[in-house]
Amino acid sequence: MKRVDIWSGAAVCVLALFIMFVVIPWQIDDVKEGYVAPRLVPQISMAFIVLLSALQVFTAARGEMQESATLVTRAELAALLKLSAIFALSLILYLYLSPLAAAVSLLAGSLLALGERRPVLIAGITGVPIFIVWLVFYRLLGTAIV
């Protein structure tokens, strides 16, 4: 995984430089006289990360890094994409329809995406948690999810 360590170190280094020179000046105003600069700790953190990630790239290039990082397999990538799509759909349903539709989409959608095909199980695993949440929040506590 030497190559992964080199690339991840380089990416983190570039990200830290971008934050240090673009995001920090853009997002944190200059300090008034007599105060410790509010940019100080973020800048120190980023400078530290730049140094360390450069060191990571250097040691990985010299072959000193331990082989530790794992690559994403096809199955993992597929699962990541499916679950991301289900979260996106659930958020859209939450914002434009209702929390109930979002909950059904999240539970039933991820069951289907992970390979469950038995209708009774899908209905049960979708219905029971939603019913419990409705019972606890809407009935017992009176704090509706809106």
Binding site: Q27, I28, D29, V31, K32, P42, S45, I49, L52
Partner: peptide, 24 residues
């Protein structure tokens, strides 16, 4: 240590307590 430094960095998000300057 990179991960720890990123953790400290994300902790700076919000209004700074001394100068009340918003950060990130």
């Amino acid at each position: 240590m990179v991960a720890g430094a990123f953790g400290v960095f994300f902790a700076t998000v919000g209004i700074e307590a001394e100068t009340f300057v918003p950060r990130f």
